[in-house]
């Protein structure tokens, strides 16, 4: 069956919208149509170092408060900065607790105007260092450290476990603090890279699978981080999906009624449960059971609701 097309919106239910992000549980995609956009004419990036993640968080809030939606806004904490700098030598400051990498793109006049405004905001948030890229080479170098953050952490630890929760941006300092406490409790180090623009957090837990029990401890630590994300108003996964790994955490975020309604969608598309069985849903119900209606007759009709 074909859903959507070259036109911009659905003529009925947005079935394409619910298939997107459904992790292969609703259908097998054989062909896609996507909209493509022209690449921006240019881009510049500014590297801003802060003495605390609170200052960095304040800066992110002020940038958005000023009506600026950067093309990218990434944050790294001290362990992630150190690992990346030692690996790539991108010129990151090593004496800061948080580093923001902010990129703006578009025509030259817009980019230069916004870089200027970003610098003003950064200084108002007590930035320790602030450097704007002056060439394409320098822009790419600024990104090289961030883009190599995962392998960089891989160099300093035998194994690492990458998490993917999303939180309301303003809760970042609180979440980082709690994560440091958990890090001590579990005796495992953690490095953080964060899509600050949209609140997507990627804590990397450093461990050694050859040490008995450490993998299990790491997984428990990871689950605690995701519970923390939900507790502060966030979600279990920002971009990597639920799969099998986060399946059993789904009840942290959703009630049984929430999950049942999701599984009924699964039944509408795949009533025999042929596609990716065992993923996303912690408890499988048979479609016949989920479809059953429980009507509680005999109660007072429309109790108490004002009627006209």
């Amino acid at each position: 069956m074909r859903l959507g097309g070259k036109h911009l919106d659905a003529g009925g239910y947005d079935l394409l919208g619910v298939v997107t992000g459904s992790e292969g549980l609703l259908g097998i995609v054989t062909e896609i149509t996507v909209r493509i956009l022209k690449k921006p004419d240019g881009a510049r990036t500014v590297l801003i170092g802060f003495a605390s993640s609170e200052d960095a968080g304040e800066c992110v809030g002020k940038v958005i408060g000023a009506g600026i939606i950067p093309a990218g806004m990434e944050m790294m904490d001290r362990p992630a900065i150190r690992a990346a700098e030692e690996f790539v030598h991108a010129g990151y400051p090593l004496d800061v607790d948080a580093l923001l990498i902010v990129e703006v793109d578009g025509p030259r006049a817009e980019v230069d105007h916004l870089i200027m405004r970003l610098e003003v905001i950064a200084h108002s948030c007590r930035a320790v260092t602030c450097r704007a890229s002056r060439s394409e080479e320098e822009r790419l170098l600024f990104w090289a450290g961030r883009k190599a953050a995962f392998p960089a952490v891989g160099r300093i630890s035998p194994d690492y476990y990458c998490m993917d929760g999303t939180i309301p941006r303003a809760r970042l300092p609180q979440v980082l603090k709690r994560m440091r406490e958990l890090s001590e409790t579990y005796g495992l180090a953690v490095a953080n890279v964060f899509h600050a623009g949209d609140g997507n957090l990627h804590p990397l837990i450093l461990y050694d699978a050859n040490r008995p029990g450490e993998l299990e401890r790491t997984e428990k630590f990871g689950a605690d981080i995701l519970r923390l994300c939900v507790e502060v108003g966030g979600v279990l996964t920002g971009e990597h999906g639920v799969g099998v790994e986060k399946r059993d955490l789904m009840p942290v975020m959703f009630s049984e009624a929430d999950l049942n309604q999701q599984q009924r969608i699964k039944c509408a598309f795949d009533d025999k449960g042929l596609l990716n069985p065992g993923k996303v849903f912690p408890t499988l119900h048979r479609c016949a059971e989920l479809g059953r209606m429980h009507v509680h007759a005999g109660r007072v009709a429309f109790p108490d609701i004002p009627r006209f």
Binding site: G21, S255, D258, Q262, I265
Partner: peptide
């Protein structure tokens, strides 16, 4: 039945996106 879907953050792929429906 009362149910919820999605959340209050922009980036979220937790479960089916019933808001789209």
């Amino acid at each position: 039945e009362t149910f919820k879907s999605g959340g209050r953050v922009v980036k979220n792929v937790t479960g089916y996106d019933l808001c789209k429906l």
